[in-house]
Design a protein around this nucleic acid. Structure first.
Length: 341
DNA sequence: AACGCAAGCAACCGCGGGAAA
DNA sequence: TTTTCCCGCGGTTGCTTGCGT
């Protein structure tokens, strides 16, 4: 038996709240207090779902909310807490007075996840030099300010033949670089392993190779045994070539496209961002990145492990796979207190 | 100046936990 | 013990705004 709806859906208004609705809700809660959200709309005379009223009050109308940008101090605290708590936004928010879980979640998904994205790229690229020289000069990143778009985080469709080149048709890019490869976590059976890349923008798109996230499982493992190919540029899935003939090595590719959006639209691709995260967990040698990486906010000083791990671990995965059982409330509070100390 | 695209944020949705009946 | 209901959380979506071309 399915759950009963939280409220009568018919006749309920959705979408943006008007100033008038805000006023009604605020007035009602100030005189009657919070709670009884299910009954609130009817009592207050609002044509809104109770959940919607609650959300509006908590995230916007409460008088104790702090407005304005997240400060660097708050950001650091968010990162620290996230490293311990994972995606438990409400718990994190409870340690940031005036901030809501929704606000922090949005901030993480926009600002901080992009930092993570760039950080991974930077940290892995920096290690390339251990095995092979980087190209003499990489074109500077050119992108609009702001976060990485959702669409640009999508893998290229593996279903569209346009996206699939046969290995034979591929040629190594002269800018390709060989990386050490992780054998800790293998991709799906029959797939190639990990890697990373730097991005090159401003060049034309010439086609998509088999080494983007979406395509990696179609790479032919016989090409070079355990080696793998994986590309991660600013628009993470773009790549156009691969070739490797060295054991325990992978190629880092230059990209010839900086606009995955158009390609995705043309192919009708759709995928959630978490898919990328999950796949990244499968493919990336986190130990390697953690060990060698540098701080996102201060490249001169290595970050505390607790902080660094936050950037690199998906909250869910970190709870279930890497850090044992979730903390109970007391342990969690103790951990938070320790972090805040 | 107009258009298109991407970022940011507000809001919605589904689910799980806990309390009450 | 089971069922129902409410609340809260986290993930996701879609609208608005602003920037770049």
């Amino acid at each position: 038996m399915g759950r009963a709806p939280c409220c009568e859906k018919v006749g309920m208004k959705k979408g943006r709240w008007t100033a008038e609705e805000d006023q009604i809700l605020s007035d009602y809660i100030r005189s009657n207090g919070e709670g009884s959200w299910r009954a609130l709309p009817k009592n207050a005379g609002l044509k809104r779902c109770g959940k919607s009223c609650r959300l509006r009050w908590i995230n916007y109308l409460r008088s104790d909310l702090k407005r304005g940008n997240i400060t660097p101090e708050e950001e650091e605290l968010i990162v620290k807490l996230h490293s311990t708590l994972g995606n438990r936004w409400s718990t994190i928010a409870s340690n940031l007075p005036g901030r809501t879980d929704n606000e922090i979640k949005n901030y993480w998904n926009s600002h901080l996840s992009r930092k993570l994205h760039n950080f991974i790229r930077k940290s892995t690229v920096m290690n390339v030099v251990e095995n092979a020289p980087l190209p003499p000069s990489l074109p500077p990143q050119k992108r609009r300010p702001g976060r990485t778009s959702r669409s640009s985080m999508k893998p290229k469709s593996i279903l569209n033949p346009r996206n699939q080149k046969t290995p034979n048709s591929l040629e190594a890019n002269k800018n390709d670089v060989v990386l050490p490869i992780s054998t800790k976590k293998n991709a799906q059976e029959g797939a190639l392993n990990v890697l990373s890349s730097y991005s090159v923008s401003g060049a034309e798109e010439t086609g998509l190779g088999p080494c983007s996230y979406g395509d990696v499982r179609y790479c032919n493992p016989s090409i070079n045994g355990d080696d793998g190919v994986f590309c991660n540029n600013d628009d993470i899935y773009n790549t156009n070539s691969f070739l490797s003939d060295e054991p325990n090595a992978v190629h880092v590719f230059s990209s010839k496209s900086n606009n995955a959006e158009d390609s995705d639209k043309k192919r009708g691709f759709s995928a959630g961002r978490e898919n990328m995260d999950t796949m990244a967990d499968d493919f990336i040698d986190w130990d390697f990145v953690c060990r060698e990486g540098q701080s996102l906010w201060d490249v001169k000083e290595g970050p505390p492990e607790s902080v660094l791990s936050s950037w690199l671990l998906d909250g869910e995965k970190f709870e279930s796979d890497d850090f044992g059982e979730p903390l109970d409330l007391d342990e969690e509070n103790a951990m938070v207190a320790w972090l805040l100390s």
